[in-house]
Computed example of a mutant assay.
Amino acid sequence: MIKIIIVDDHVMVRSGLRMLLSGKEDIEVIGEASEGDEGIRKAVELRPDVVLMDLSMPSGKDGLTSAAELKAELPDIAILILTMHDDDEYLFRAIHAGAAGYVLKSAPHEELLGAIRAVSKGDAYLYPTATKRLMKEYMERMKRGESSDQFDSLSEREREVLTFTAKGYANKEIAEQLFISVKTVETHKSNVMEKLGFKSRPELVKYALKKGLLNFE
């Protein structure tokens, strides 16, 4: 039996999900919460297998922050993000926060059920269009002659700056972590962007994820 907690600020959404999931023989909804802090408390108390987490909860702590705090508290829990945001930036921020999966609220019921069962077994799940976009981007880079060898051109310090940047650290925070000046951080970051051919932070996040540089524990 897969035990689930639903965290969403809309009562109707929670009720609809409970009705859908409670009708399945292998799934049991053991709790609900309307915002992140309540969801974390319920998860710590009830120890579900999967937490179904909304991203946007204006009345309380948001899903990304809650997911990161919950993973720190319960590393073995599976967090499945259920959201209306079909956006790569949110996708990678969710994965960075420790989510095991990301499903759109517009997805068919069968897809949601499949995602729940997948993450409960320790697998990862991305909605199909996101997977296609990632594969398309990878193929385009390969066609342009870009390969993982680019990583070898980065110095050890540049790799450290890349990792901290992808994790969301500000330049000042990176400088404090590495005991270097903010100006030096900016120089390393500029070198990384130039060597890898990137123009934005989301590109760095995707690259760092693919290279296994982000620790999601």
Rank of each mutant, 00 (worst) to 15 (best):
I6S: 03
V7R: 00
D9A: 06
M12V: 15
V13F: 12
V13G: 15
S15D: 13
G16A: 09
L17A: 10
L21T: 05
S22Y: 05
G23Y: 02
K24A: 07
K24F: 07
E25F: 04
D26R: 10
G31I: 07
E32A: 06
A33D: 04
A33P: 10
G36D: 10
E38S: 11
K42R: 14
V44G: 03
L46M: 13
D49G: 09
V50D: 04
V50I: 08
D54L: 06
L55G: 01
L55T: 04
M57T: 09
G60T: 09
G63A: 04
L64D: 00
S66V: 10
A67S: 15
E73K: 15
L74K: 08
L74M: 15
L74Q: 09
D76E: 15
D76M: 05
L82V: 14
L82P: 01
H85C: 04
H85A: 08
D86C: 10
D86L: 10
D87M: 06
D88F: 05
D88K: 09
E89Q: 13
A99Q: 10
G101L: 05
K105L: 09
K105E: 05
H109L: 02
L112A: 00
L113Q: 10
L113W: 04
G114L: 02
R117N: 08
A118W: 01
V119S: 08
A124V: 08
A124W: 07
P128Q: 04
A130P: 02
A130M: 14
K132M: 09
K132Q: 12
L134A: 04
L134R: 15
E137C: 01
M139Q: 10
E140D: 14
R141D: 14
M142F: 13
M142P: 01
K143C: 02
K143E: 10
E146M: 07
E146D: 09
S148R: 13
F151E: 12
D152P: 01
S155A: 08
E158G: 04
E158R: 06
V161A: 06
A166P: 04
K167H: 03
G168P: 11
Y169D: 13
N171P: 12
K172S: 08
K172N: 05
I174Y: 03
I174W: 01
E176K: 13
L178F: 08
S181G: 15
E186M: 07
T187W: 05
T187A: 11
T187E: 12
H188Y: 15
H188T: 02
H188Q: 12
S190D: 11
N191S: 12
N191C: 04
M193L: 15
M193N: 10
K195Q: 09
G197A: 05
F198T: 15
R201K: 14
L204W: 06
K206H: 06
A208G: 03
K210F: 11
N215G: 07
F216A: 13
